[in-house]
Simulated scan of single mutants.
Amino acid sequence: MNGSTIEKRTAPRHRVLKRGTLAFVGGGGVDCMVRNISSNGARLDIVNPVGLPPSFKLVIEADQFIRRCHPVWSNDNRIGVAFD
């Protein structure tokens, strides 16, 4: 990053490395790795972001964490989600 980069996030991010699942409303889901998280959203690594539904739940079983969210950006196998 260069010195002129503007931080757009409204909540601080916390770097993590936690196994998660994107659970779909109609059933099914995909595994993911949570790389950072804030009160507003998270950055996730997934095998293939193509074909994700417009909303889903992020489940982190180890933390008993479940939040409804939607994708806001994707880049290769990484996606950013905002919590609803």
Rank of each mutant, 00 (worst) to 15 (best):
M1P: 02
M1S: 11
N2F: 09
S4F: 08
I6V: 13
I6D: 08
R9G: 14
A11L: 14
P12M: 12
R13I: 08
H14M: 13
H14Q: 13
V16S: 03
K18E: 14
K18D: 09
R19P: 01
R19I: 14
G20H: 03
G20D: 06
T21N: 04
T21I: 15
L22M: 10
L22D: 02
L22R: 05
A23M: 13
A23R: 14
F24T: 04
V25L: 11
G26E: 15
G26L: 12
G26F: 10
G28P: 06
G29H: 12
G29T: 07
V30P: 01
V30F: 00
M33H: 09
R35N: 10
R35T: 06
N36G: 11
S38Q: 13
A42V: 05
R43N: 08
R43I: 01
D45S: 12
V47K: 10
N48L: 06
N48R: 06
N48T: 09
P49W: 03
V50S: 11
L52C: 06
L52N: 02
P53R: 04
S55C: 05
F56V: 03
L58V: 07
L58P: 01
I60N: 03
D63Y: 03
F65H: 03
F65R: 11
R67D: 02
R67H: 11
R67Q: 10
C69M: 08
H70A: 04
H70E: 00
V72H: 03
V72G: 03
W73S: 12
W73Y: 14
S74T: 12
D76Y: 08
D76F: 06
N77I: 02
R78A: 02
R78N: 05
A82N: 03
F83T: 01
D84I: 10
